[in-house]
Structures are given as structure tokens and as C-alpha cells.
């Protein structure tokens, strides 16, 4: 049976009876546990005093919130206007081929979750990708593969 992690339970308890904190609570749960499990969703709904469906509505509205475990690293290819103007589709193709995934998928080995995002705010140095919280600018198709391989090596070691 699924059991709530203690720190997730603490987050839920802290926001008890404060429905206006729903999004903050969900963000905190995700940053602690990596994703929002069905159990944490139902527990949070009870604590906040909102219908679980309403909470699911919040989760499904925001693209950052996820209901499944993420990969070890998160790779985002920027699909914003400036990056598209400077050839981001080549970058995306390169990443997708290298990892063997489509947008919003996680590699089979659980190493990388892959997403296309709309603007990393690095428009003056397009095209850009982000791996976890760090942005990489002026990318080219070969360079991003090398960057990913560096992360793979670090993880293997």
C-alpha cells in the first residue's frame, strides 16, 4: 500500500484548511517528491477542504505539475519565437534522436524527462536548451548531444 512520505505529509498538514494555498502546496509536494501521486492529491484535497476533482483540475491546468515520476534529469528544448527563428527544430530533432523520446516522455532508463518549453528567456543567445535548472545558449545539434552525454557520464559514475 502506498504510504505518504513524512515530508509530504508535513506539507499537507501545513496548508490545512487553506484552499488558496492549493497551488503552492502542489508545487511544494512536487519539489519534495518529484511528482504528485494520487495519494498525495487525495490527502491534500481532504486537508484543504476542496473536492479532489477541483485539485486535479489545477494539476492538469499547469504544464509544470506532473502526476507521474520524472526522470533523473529534465531536458527542455526551447520552442520560443527567437529559438525557432534561429533553428531550434534542429536542436529538438537532435535531442529526440539521441534520447529516443518524444516531447513529454521519459527515457526508458529513467535518466531524462524531455519537454519542449515556450521560452526560457534566453532569447539573445538562441537557440537554447535547459538541463535541470541550468540554461545552455547558442546551441547546435552536435553540442547538445555532447552536453547530454556529459550528464549521462556523471550519472553513470
Amino acid at each position: 500500500m502506498e504510504v505518504l512520505e513524512q515530508n509530504v505529509a508535513d506539507i499537507i498538514a501545513r496548508h490545512k484548511s487553506r484552499p488558496e494555498m492549493a497551488l503552492v502546496a502542489l508545487q511544494e509536494i512536487q519539489s519534495t517528491a518529484g511528482y504528485i501521486s494520487a495519494l498525495s492529491r487525495s490527502s491534500l484535497a481532504i486537508a484543504l477542504g476542496v473536492p479532489e476533482g477541483e485539485l486535479q483540475g489545477v494539476i492538469s491546468f499547469y504544464s509544470e505539475l506532473r502526476s507521474t515520476p520524472p526522470g533523473l534529469h529534465r531536458v527542455c528544448v526551447c520552442n520560443g519565437d527567437s529559438c525557432v527563428a534561429t533553428g531550434s527544430h534542429h536542436i529538438a530533432a537532435s535531442v529526440e534522436t539521441h534520447l529516443g523520446v518524444s516531447p513529454s516522455q521519459t527515457t526508458l532508463d529513467g535518466q531524462f524527462s524531455y519537454e519542449r518549453v515556450y521560452c526560457l528567456g534566453n532569447c539573445a543567445l538562441s537557440p537554447s536548451i535547459a538541463i535541470d535548472e541550468e540554461v545552455y545558449g547558442r546551441c547546435n545539434p552536435d553540442g547538445v548531444v555532447q552536453q547530454l552525454e556529459r550528464f549521462q557520464r556523471t550519472t553513470d559514475a
Binding site: D81, S82, A85, T86, C123, A124, S126
Partner: peptide, 12 residues
């Protein structure tokens, strides 16, 4: 003005 896209020296 925030310059972006296909420019030699984009910047703010």
C-alpha cells in the same frame, strides 16, 4: 527593447 532572433548582436 529586447532584441532576439536572427541578429548579429541581440541584447537589451
Amino acid at each position: 527593447i529586447q532584441l532576439a532572433g536572427s541578429l548579429r548582436a541581440p541584447g537589451l
